[in-house]
């Protein structure tokens, strides 16, 4: 991701202050094949809150029942820690949905500990402190924002440390746990709108290509290898009409992968 202007604040400020004016009418249809620009670097990986924002509108699932306890003490190589970090942040969103203050605060501390384990602790310290205090006051919107921010900060810090591969694993860990929860919720109360949220073939392809492009040393890692196989198994299920059966199967596969991340294998 380019940082040409180098100031998120600048871009955010324009978002806040700009006043609408007239625009040239855009064409109603374009030929996407003329854009060589669908390069992987530019794919936007959505934040977990974008998915949970929609889940909020789909009803009131039993979020407490969706919570699980990640085992962050069982740490292995950096690849596993990166995946676990992403999964723990996604767990934070579930805890927010469940309005479970204690769990959110523990997750805040877990994020800090995992960030420390891969050398990016200072990047997320203020975020994790904020998660803990905002959870205490029940400011769930702010907690979500800090969780999103922690994920972004960790990934950016890894990229700055020339560890972009690990940054992708953080995103992937979050996506896997997010997808496990999403399929669990949709499975319990199936609706076409809920199932439609799984229509993410390009995002899945992005993760597959990222794993395939990793150095051999990382691809040979047992956990990464297992996740690669899991994604290959999910791919045909997501690339067709999503049925209750495919939702169930995707839930099983992502559940197995999240367990493998926890167990380091």
């Amino acid at each position: 991701m380019n940082r040409i202007l180098g100031r998120v604040a600048f871009a955010t400020a324009l978002f806040l202050v700009a006043i609408p004016g007239f625009a040239e009418a855009p064409p109603s249809h374009i030929d996407l094949t003329k854009f060589p620009a669908t390069q992987l670097d530019d794919v936007v990986v959505p934040l977990p809150s974008e998915v949970f924002n929609v889940l909020d509108k789909l009803g009131s699932p039993n979020w407490q029942g969706e919570l699980r306890e990640p085992t962050i003490k069982n740490r292995g190589e950096r690849t596993q820690i990166a995946l676990l970090l992403g999964a723990v942040v996604a767990e934070g969103f579930v805890a927010v949905e469940a309005a479970d203050k204690g769990r959110v605060q523990r997750i805040g501390r877990d994020v800090l500990e995992l960030a420390r384990a891969i050398g990016v602790e200072s990047t997320v310290l203020s975020r994790t402190n904020s998660i803990i205090t905002k959870a205490d006051s029940g400011d769930w919107v702010a907690v979500r924002r800090e969780l999103d921010g922690a994920l972004t900060d960790v990934k950016n810090a890894m990229i700055e440390l020339k560890d972009a591969q690990l940054a992708h694993l953080v995103s992937l860990g979050g996506w896997l746990r997010g997808t496990e929860v999403l399929t669990s919720v949709v499975q319990k109360s199936y609706s076409p709108d809920g199932a439609d949220l799984l229509n993410q073939p390009d995002l899945l392809k992005y993760f597959q290509q990222r794993l395939a492009g990793m150095p051999l040393r990382m691809r040979n890692n047992q956990l990464v290898n297992k996740i690669q196989k899991g994604l290959d198994e999910i791919s045909p299920l997501i690339n067709q009409k999503i049925t209750p059966g495919s939702v169930k199967r995707i839930n099983e596969i992502t559940g197995q992968m999240v367990k493998a991340i926890d167990a380091r294998a």
Partner: peptide, 9 residues
């Protein structure tokens, strides 16, 4: 909610 990230070039 404005995402705390940017894309550019």
């Amino acid at each position: 909610l404005v995402r705390d990230d940017q894309w550019g070039g």
